[in-house]
Design a binder for these strands. Structure first.
Length: 360
DNA sequence: TAGGCCATCTGGTCCT
DNA sequence: AGGACCAGATGGCCTA
């Protein structure tokens, strides 16, 4: 719960005002006390805060001439090693951790913690922004950090290849590191479902749709979400022999939140069959009624495998060929409305080539 | 329950 | 001195 609260950056500054990190303030205090006790016990240690493990920082701060304006105390206050034979240590005198210094150290540490939190939040925000511009985006099933980066890398790589060669990148030369199975499924399901909504939207608007954001047109559509239970996943649509549990699970996960009750009825779900694929390719089916321009502009296909060398079950489960023509018996028309999963693409660039990206 | 993912704390290092 | 950045440690949450 605390963790969740802290995920809300706006809350953090206020929380910091109230004694810093709630969970750890106590332990930090005790830690500080322990350190002080340890220093006195050892006799020859007078570490600055942050020097528990070694003295490098201490040496640094001492060299820098750290001064305690108000509470500068000699080391003798604390130390009585009782060993006159021991060679006197060189260097500046060490200072005892007085309560005032301890307090300052604590404040410093809390400030550093707050900065670190802010820094990590900024980093996460940037990562979220990146998630939104890689070709698959879901609010409900976020790509992990590492997968976001890998996906982005592959996306950039493929775009570069297309720009350089004007043709589909060679997937063999691609970075083969793996996305997880759930992510593989997510991307696959994401694209397939969006294609369906996308096309529906086009039909409703006369094969045209708005592009409020010319860069990421798919953001224009607020997708509804529906849920497919595992049961339905397994029992429904026997004709789709290639569908497997993993793929079903991904759909289930994707549709778990924000589900409209009406979609939970068996009748409704029975109409929804995850798309199939037999060769690792999947693509969006083009409506026959689309004008040539629309067809050219909205075609979207994708070749997708998982990275461990094993084919993605999701990819296997998709039925549409790379050309956008239907190659199996799946019914993309019957796919459930999708919830906040977005496929990003721009105008009508070589999507066939771009879709080769997700081989990672 | 193990493993993955994540947020946070912490100390070290470098830089200004 | 203080801030930024980094990496290790830790603990919570979630899922298979």
């Amino acid at each position: 719960m605390l963790t969740r609260l802290f995920n809300e950056p706006s809350l953090l500054p206020d929380m910091q005002k109230f004694g810093g990190w709630v969970d750890d303030s106590g332990s930090e205090d005790s830690k500080m006390k322990d350190e002080e006790q340890e220093r006195c016990r050892l006799g020859d240690e007078d570490l600055e805060e942050g020097d528990v493990k070694d003295g490098s920082s201490r040496a640094q701060s001492e060299i820098a001439g750290e001064e305690d304006d108000d509470e500068d105390v000699d080391e003798d206050d604390c130390v009585d090693d009782g060993d006159g034979d021991r060679p006197k240590k060189r260097g500046p005198k060490k200072r005892k951790m007085t309560p005032a210094r301890l307090e300052r150290s604590k404040v410093r540490r809390q400030k550093a913690n707050a900065r670190e939190r802010t820094r990590m939040h900024d980093l996460n925000s940037a990562l979220d922004n990146l998630r939104k511009v890689v070709p698959c985006y879901s609010k409900t099933q976020k790509l992990s950090k590492i997968e976001t980066l890998r996906l982005a890398k592959n996306y950039i790589w493929a775009l570069s290849e297309i720009l350089r060669n004007g043709k589909r990148p060679d997937v063999v030369s691609y970075d083969k590191r793996s996305l997880s199975q759930p992510t593989t499924n997510l991307v696959a399901g994401c694209l397939q479902l969006n294609s369906r909504n996308f096309l529906t939207e086009q039909c409703q608007e006369g094969a045209r749709f708005h592009l409020p954001n010319p860069s990421f047109s798919m953001h224009a559509f607020p997708y509804q979400c529906s849920r497919l239970s595992s049961t339905h996943c397994q029992s429904g649509s026997n004709a789709h022999s290639l569908r497997n549990h993993s793929f079903c699970s991904s759909y289930e996960a994707l549709y778990t939140e924000g589900t409209s009750p009406e979609y939970n009825s068996p009748d409704y779900e029975s109409h929804h069959s995850p798309p199939m694929c037999v060769n690792g390719n999947f693509a969006l089916r083009q409506p026959e009624s689309l004008s040539p321009d629309a067809e050219r502009g909205y075609q979207y296909s994708m070749h997708y495998t998982n990275l461990h060398g094993s084919r993605s079950s999701a990819a296997h489960g998709l039925a549409y060929g790379p050309s956008g023509t239907r190659s199996g018996s799946a019914h993309s028309e019957n796919l459930p409305p999708f919830h906040d999963v977005h496929v990003h693409h721009d105008r009508a660039p070589p999507y066939d080539e771009l879709n080769a990206l997700f081989h990672n």
